[in-house]
Amino acid sequence: MLINQDLILLLLPVLILQLILLVIAIIDLIRIEKANGPKWVWALVIIFINIIGPIVYFIFGRRP
């Protein structure tokens, strides 16, 4: 069976890290005054694109 307890335990740290990345990106998006583009689009990008979404937001989303 592909999905068993061992696999979940093994991947748990990775999933948690992904979740932290997503959460801090969202917190940052809420905190900054103006994003590089509409905020709701960035929110969708961060939430729905796994790993890459938050990275792209941190690189291109928050221009001073």
Binding site: V14, L17, I20, L21, I24, A25, D28, P54, I55, F58
Partner: peptide, 14 residues
Amino acid sequence: RNMKWIWVPIVFIL
């Protein structure tokens, strides 16, 4: 403040 201390290590680890 711009969260580099958090997101860069996480991304590298991933």
